[in-house]
Design a binder for these strands. Structure first.
Length: 599
RNA sequence: GGACCUGUGGCUCAAUUGGAUAGAGCACCUGACUACGGAUCAGGAGGUUAGGGGUUCGACUCCCUUCAGGUCCA
């Protein structure tokens, strides 16, 4: 049964309507529904749903306590789910009867598609990863990839049709640098001959270029040139620029080399993507799109959105919007970044006619996207309203920013391998996986290592910057991926032992406090998906699953499951365990994290 | 010069978008039916939410200002 709305909403709506009636009956006042504020009851108080009475007090002209009590009494009579209530300060805490919570288990939580919303008929594109083809992926890219993938998963669960897209920056001066260095110093080295992963091989020559380039600059400076002159005059940079011109002219040899080196990089990226578990429906290449956008410039000029300066360059004046004047086409008629992005945006829309489009790009480009979206709106593109920049903070090292050219990066492949190795060590120390084949072991280490890494990166609010200390390895205890995986494995073990089969999960006796807490938390899952989707933030999901796992462990310690004396209690607790396991698995899946049956 | 983002116990993060006594994890200290899986659980200690002012029944959250870190635009 797919959801139209979150399960708890039905009950909340009932309570809101009843409250509205109560206010009319008691105080002869009509209060709009949105002023009736419900929230989750804080753990230290009794009850599950809380009505904030302050907005009502202004009208009732009575004390918070009295208002709360009057409303509580009315609601208790009118809403059958409300078993009791208490009033503390201005807060009316409502206790919902156990029957209601137990019913949710059967009706929603244990359903195989729990958490999946009905298709909403909207298409959304998520563009992420967007690498350059001159170097391998690093930790920053990893954050980008995981975010993009998770957001895509979450939006799918929320009922969108999602198209995952990768726009590859495969042209420009940077790749020419690698090409040149390889030609000059490479001795025909290939991934096969060197055993290097393709992207690492090309990245190696990017670094060599930089090193040699710096040498030349120094020599020129010693010969009396200023730094600025030297940077411009160094033979290597001139050659690279020449190479770029040849590329643009379609020089056959250059194109062949370019294709060859890019194919190495793609083979390397594919491996990394596969390890990370991310994928794309469609690849766009900047070599195809970099000339786009010029017709949009024309369109803007005729519409009077852009203006031409005397030197022939084209601009847009955004000062009225609090921004600057922005160049959109150079005097010599060549594009700038934003020109092609305008064109690419139009191209993507023509291809898919999506309702929304999300760009997963670092926050250093906040200004760029603000301008891009604003221009498209000014051009009258109605679809521009669906554009969204999912801006995330940089991943910094204790030493500062990562810089590929200077070699101060945390390489994605290295990091992944390291995580897997650590997972292997930890697991072997604990020695709980007797009977695993070698293949199963490797599979498990990958699951745990990547689970730790992914959870570490996704539990933080995207827009916050992330500090990563390579010397302090990522934790496996506490608020971590492995903790959650462990909880899942533990539940799985119990269910297996009990030969659990899912069937009617009715239960008539009353609930213990932890059992009720667990149910209340479990039924919140769709609400979290909704918030997560609306805010484009996987962190909500991550924190929620952690809360759930923690709560289950508490339950596990407080209440006997297999040893429960009453068989119906035992059955019920097994159902509860199964529901928890299922939500953990689904939630982790939204983050792109797998959970093991045993670990 | 202008604009944007961030600032919460020693460290890493939360806080239902303006609600109750600001919650977790790591690290530290104490403990757990002689483990239904201890990668667990219970408890302790640790906070003027960067500083100051304002708005109101109520502010980590909104406004003003100062400071610190980061980023972008010309």
């Amino acid at each position: 049964m797919r959801l139209n709305y979150t399960p708890i909403m039905t009950l909340e709506y009932t309570i809101q309507l009843a409250t509205q009636k109560a206010i009319t009956a008691l105080y002869k006042i009509d209060l709009p529904l949105e002023q009736i504020v419900l929230q989750e009851t804080r753990k230290e108080f009794e009850g599950q749903i809380t009505l904030v009475t302050f907005p009502v007090i202004r009208l009732s002209k009575k004390s918070p306590e009295q208002t709360g009590t009057e409303l509580g009494e009315y609601l208790k009579k009118q809403v059958k789910e409300i078993a009791s209530f208490n009033v503390i300060k201005g807060f009316l805490n409502l206790s919902i009867n156990d029957t209601y919570w137990i019913k949710q288990l059967q009706q929603h939580i244990l359903k195989s598609d729990y958490g999946q919303f009905k298709p909403n008929g909207q298409k959304v594109m998520v563009e992420y990863s967007s690498p350059n083809t001159n170097k391998p992926l690093h930790l920053g890219h990893v954050r980008n990839n995981l975010l993009g993938y998770a957001v895509a998963q979450i939006l799918t669960a929320y009922g969108y049709e999602v198209i995952k897209v990768n726009l590859i920056n495969d042209r420009g001066i940077h790749i020419c640098k690698s090409m040149l260095a390889w030609t000059l110093f490479g001795n025909n080295e290939t991934p096969e001959s060197s055993g290097l992963k393709g992207d690492h091989l090309v990245g190696k020559y990017y670094v060599i270029f930089d090193k040699e380039y710096k040498k030349q600059i120094e020599e020129l400076q010693n010969a009396g040139q200023t730094e600025e002159e030297a940077k411009k005059n160094a033979p290597l940079i001139r050659q690279a620029q020449e190479l770029l011109l040849q590329w643009e002219a379609g020089d056959e040899q250059v194109i062949t080399l370019w294709k060859k080196m890019n194919s190495w990089v793609y083979a390397g990226f594919d491996k990394t993507y596969k390890k990370l578990g991310v994928d794309f429906e469609k690849y766009y290449y900047e070599s195809d799109t970099y000339l786009l956008g010029k017709d949009i410039i024309e369109e803007g000029l005729t519409k009077g959105v852009f203006f031409k300066k005397s030197d022939g360059s084209v601009w847009i004046d955004l000062t009225a919007d609090g921004l600057d004047e922005k160049l959109v086409l150079r005097a010599d008629g060549t594009s700038v970044y934003i020109t092609q992005d305008l064109g690419t945006a139009q191209l993507k829309y023509n291809d898919y006619q999506m309702d929304q489009s999300i760009y997963v790009v670092g926050n250093e480009q906040d200004y760029h996207f603000k301008v891009l979206f604003l221009i498209l709106k000014k051009l009258g593109k109605t679809w521009a309203n669906g554009l969204y920049h999912l801006s995330y903070g940089m991943v910094d090292l204790p030493s500062g920013k990562m810089k590929s050219r200077e070699g101060t990066v945390v390489d994605a492949d290295d990091l992944i391998d390291e995580m897997i190795t650590t997972a292997c060590k930890r697991t072997e120390e604990l020695g709980k996986i007797d009977g695993f084949s070698e293949e199963e072991k490797q599979e498990l280490y990958r699951m745990i290592g990547l689970g730790a890494l992914k959870y570490f990166l996704l539990k933080v609010e995207p827009k916050k910057r992330l500090l990563f200390d390579p010397n302090e390895s990522i934790d496996f205890q506490g608020n971590t991926g492995p903790f959650i995986q462990y909880t899942y494995a533990r539940i799985n073990s119990i269910l297996t032992k009990a030969h659990y089969v899912q069937h009617d999960a009715n239960h008539s006796t009353s609930l213990t406090a932890v059992e009720r807490d667990l149910l209340v938390t479990l039924i919140k899952y769709p609400t979290i998906i909704e918030a997560s989707a609306k805010e484009h933030s996987p962190a909500h999901i991550a924190n929620y699953i952690f809360e759930l796992a923690k709560l289950y462990n508490k339950f596990y310690h407080e209440e006997p499951i297999l040893k429960a004396e009453d068989t119906s209690v035992k059955q019920f607790r097994l159902h509860l365990s199964a529901g928890t396991a299922s939500v953990i698995k689904k939630g982790m899946q939204l983050l792109g994290i797998l959970v093991p049956n045993k670990m």
